[in-house]
């Protein structure tokens, strides 16, 4: 990509992100009452969305060929264990990343 193309792409991404953030405020201006369905969604959506995002992260993991998603599975278990033990964001995420990097760089070396 050329520099103008990179700038254009970044601006498109920035504007699209902004649109998704702005739309609720345009649909429900300060003068309007928020409907019940929107109040309900506000309560339950964050949970469903995070569940979806976790699945999204594994969407490209090959599970029918070696290493059968094992690095992802083991590193995810490490995240769960670290979370249960520490409840600390940095230790949980940092530890999970280190485990994953060791697994794919040293233990499950492809090729």
């Amino acid at each position: 990509m050329t520099t103008p193309q990179i700038i254009t792409t970044i601006l498109i991404v920035a504007l699209t992100t902004l649109i998704t953030r702005v739309v609720p405020f345009l649909v429900f201006p300060e003068s309007k009452k928020i409907p019940d369905w929107a109040v309900y969604l506000d309560k339950v959506l964050p949970y469903a969305v995070i569940g979806m995002l976790v699945v999204f992260c594994f969407k490209d993991t090959p599970i029918t060929a070696a290493p059968y998603g094992l690095p992802e599975l083991i590193a995810s278990l490490a995240v769960v264990i670290l979370y249960k033990l520490t409840k600390r964001m940095i230790l949980t995420i940092g530890g999970g990343v280190i485990v994953y990097m060791i697994l794919i760089q040293i233990i499950f070396v492809s090729k």
């Binding site: 995070i50 590193a75 995240v79 995420i93 999970g96 990343v97 990097m101």
Partner: peptide, 13 residues
């Protein structure tokens, strides 16, 4: 290689 797992770990967290 593998640092991108940070995002997966964040969402899992």
């Amino acid at each position: 290689k593998g640092i991108e797992f940070a995002m997966t770990a964040l969402f899992l967290y």
